[in-house]
Write a protein that binds this DNA or RNA. Structure first.
Lengths: 224, 224
DNA sequence: ACGGTTTTCCGTACAGTGCACGGAAGGCAG
DNA sequence: CTGCCTTCCGTGCACTGTACGGAAAACCGT
C-alpha cells in the first residue's frame, strides 16, 4: 500500500514539498489578493505554511519572485488561432492581454520596471512580430509597430487600473474627485457635451485607441 | 545691516527654513541620483540636513512626496508654441515629454501607479486635448486619441529605461544578454537581416511609433 | 538497518523602512 | 517675562528583505 501524500506512518501531517511552481502560484494569488504593496516574503511564506527563509532555497530574491509571477500570468494569454488575418489576430490577442492585466491589476506596475524576457513573454512577443511580419511590415517599422502596440496596452490598462483604484474607490477624498470633475467638464464641449464624472466605457475606449494604431499600421503596408 | 541668512548674531549656523518647495526639489534630486528604490524619507531628510520627522510637517506621507515630485518634473515640459499646426505641435510636445522622462528615469514607474492629477499634469493634458480638438477630433475618439498618445509615451520610455537599466548595465549577467540576443536573432530576417544585440536607435523608433499613431489620428479627421 | 552525505527547511539576527507620538526649541504677541 | 503657536525632531514600533548557521529530513551505498 502506497504511503499517504498527506500523512506519514506516525500520522504526523506532511505538507507537500516546496517547489518553485508552488511558490510562484502562491505569489500570484497573494498579488491578486493584496496587490504589490501587500506582497512580502513573509506573507508569501505564510500562505505556503512555510518558514520565510525556506523560499530562498528555490528563489533568489523577492524581485525574482515578482519576475516569475509576472511571466506566469503573461502565460494566461493563449495562443492565437492560426489562419486569422493579421488585424483580427492582433485585436484578439491584445484584447486578451488586456483582460489578463485586468484580472491581475498589479501587472502594469511591474511591466513598467522590468524587461519582459520570461519564456511566456517572449512567446507572446513572437506572436505579434510574426503577425505583423506576415502582414508585410519589416525592419524598423516592424519593431516600432510592435513596441507601439505593447506600450499602448500597458499604458491603457495602467491608467484604467489607477482610475478604479484611486478615483473610484470609497477612500477617494472629495478633493480628488472634484479635480477630476473639473478637468472633465473643462473639455465637455469637445467631448460631446455630456461629460459626466462617471467612468468611461473602457472597453470601447480600448478598442478605439487600438484601431487608431492599427489604422496607422495598415497605412504603411501599401505605400500610397 | 541686514542679518545674515546663514548665521545668527551668536554665529550659530541657521539653516534655511524647511518648506514644501525645498522638500520637493530635494526629492527630485534624490530620485534622480538614487532611483525610486533608493528613495527613503530618511535619505531625503539627510539631504536637507533635517530630522526625518520634520518633513511630515509639510508633507503627508512618502507617497505624497512622490506625487509632488512627479508633478514637479512634469512641469519641465514647457508650453507649446501657439500657432503650430496640430501634428507638429504634438510631435514637439511628446518628444519633449520623452526627453523629460529620460532625464528622470523614475517617472514611468510612478506614472504607472498614480493618477496624473497634479496641476502640471493637468496643464499638459489640456494642451493635448486642445490640439486634437482643434484638429477636428471630438467625443470618444478625442479621449481615445489622448489616451493612446500618453500611453505610448509612457510605455515607450518605460521600455527604453529598463533596457538601459537592466540589459545594458555592467551587472547584467551573460544569461540575460544571451536571451535577448536569441530573441532578436530570431526575427533577424524580418528586421532586415542585420539585427545585432546592440541598442536600437531609440530616437528614430520613438518617432516612428509616434507617426504611426498620428497617421491613425489623421485618418479620422476626414472620413473617407 | 545503518552511517554518511546532500538537500530541504527555518529560527535568529541585522540593517533598513514609514511613520505615530510627545516633547523640545524658536518666533511672536501681550 | 509669560503664554501661545509653529516648527523641529528623538524615540519607538511594527514591518521589510535576506545573510548565516544549524536542525531536520531525505536519499544512498553498503
Amino acid at each position: 500500500m502506497p504511503e499517504s501524500i498527506w500523512f506519514r506512518d506516525d500520522d504526523r501531517p506532511r505538507r507537500p514539498r516546496l517547489s518553485r511552481e508552488r511558490i510562484v502560484a502562491a505569489a500570484v494569488a497573494l498579488l491578486d489578493a493584496e496587490g504589490v504593496t501587500g506582497f512580502s516574503m513573509r506573507a508569501l511564506a505564510a500562505r505556503l505554511r512555510a518558514g520565510t527563509m525556506s523560499l530562498y532555497e528555490y528563489v533568489q530574491s523577492r524581485e525574482d519572485v515578482l519576475d516569475l509571477a509576472l511571466d506566469e500570468v503573461i502565460g494566461e494569454v493563449d495562443e492565437p488561432r492560426a489562419g486569422d488575418p493579421w488585424r483580427e489576430l492582433l485585436v484578439r490577442q491584445l484584447t486578451r492581454s488586456r483582460q489578463v492585466m485586468r484580472r491581475h491589476p498589479w501587472m502594469p506596475a511591474l511591466t513598467a520596471t522590468r524587461p519582459l524576457l520570461g519564456p511566456n513573454a517572449l512567446a507572446r512577443s513572437r506572436v505579434i512580430y510574426a503577425a505583423l511580419a506576415r502582414a508585410g511590415l519589416h525592419g524598423p517599422e516592424l519593431t516600432a509597430a510592435v513596441g507601439t502596440l505593447s506600450s499602448y496596452v500597458n499604458g491603457f490598462v495602467a491608467a484604467e487600473n489607477t482610475w478604479w483604484d484611486t478615483v473610484r474607490t470609497p477612500a477617494a477624498d472629495a478633493g480628488l474627485r472634484a479635480r477630476v470633475a473639473d478637468h472633465l467638464n473643462e473639455h465637455a464641449a469637445d467631448l460631446g457635451g455630456l461629460a459626466q464624472v462617471d467612468d468611461g466605457d473602457f472597453d470601447g475606449q480600448f478598442r478605439l485607441g487600438l484601431d487608431l494604431i492599427l489604422d496607422g499600421i495598415a497605412g504603411r503596408l501599401r505605400p500610397a
